[in-house]
Computed example of a mutant assay.
Amino acid sequence: MMEAFILIIVKPGNEDLVYEKLKDVPQVKEIYKVYGEYDIIIRVEVNDIKELDKFHDEVLRKINEIEMTETLIASSYGS
């Protein structure tokens, strides 16, 4: 299992619409509205990098209200 945090910039005023489009997507485990440079942060769980690629291509890139994303792949400390 692989976990990633995706930082999302949304077209102004469309935060609720993007939330509605993401809230029932199985890979999306948490969604947060945040203040600052980004508008939304989501935590996703996927099996591997190919599934993460598919999530980007088939979910995020089809939401027109999203202007930009930055993906952070989570890693753990220690062994």
Rank of each mutant, 00 (worst) to 15 (best):
V59E: 06
Y32C: 08
I73L: 12
K21C: 04
K11G: 00
E3V: 14
G78A: 06
I31G: 01
I31M: 11
S75D: 04
P12M: 08
E20C: 01
Y38M: 06
V59F: 09
I9V: 14
E65D: 10
K29V: 09
E3Y: 13
T71Q: 05
Y77E: 12
N64F: 09
R43I: 12
E20M: 07
Y19L: 14
S75K: 06
K29I: 09
K23G: 02
I49Y: 12
I42K: 00
E45R: 11
K33F: 15
D48L: 07
A4W: 05
L60K: 03
N14Q: 13
E45S: 07
I40H: 00
I73W: 04
A4M: 01
P12Y: 06
M2D: 05
E30S: 10
D39I: 01
V10Y: 00
Y32H: 15
G78P: 02
K54V: 04
K21M: 10
K23W: 03
E37W: 05
Y35S: 15
N47L: 12
I6R: 00
D48R: 06
N64E: 15
V10A: 05
V34G: 04
E20Q: 13
M1F: 07
I66G: 00
N14D: 07
N14S: 13
E20T: 05
V46N: 07
A74R: 03
V25D: 03
D39Q: 09
F55C: 02
S75C: 08
D48I: 11
S79A: 12
E3G: 07
I73H: 02
Y32P: 05
I6Q: 00
Y35G: 11
R43S: 12
T69G: 00
V34T: 13
K29R: 15
K50E: 15
D53S: 14
N47E: 15
D48W: 07
I40F: 04
E37V: 08
V46W: 04
V10F: 01
K62R: 15
M68P: 00
D57T: 10
K23F: 03
V59T: 14
L22W: 10
I31N: 04
V25Q: 01
E58R: 10
E51D: 14
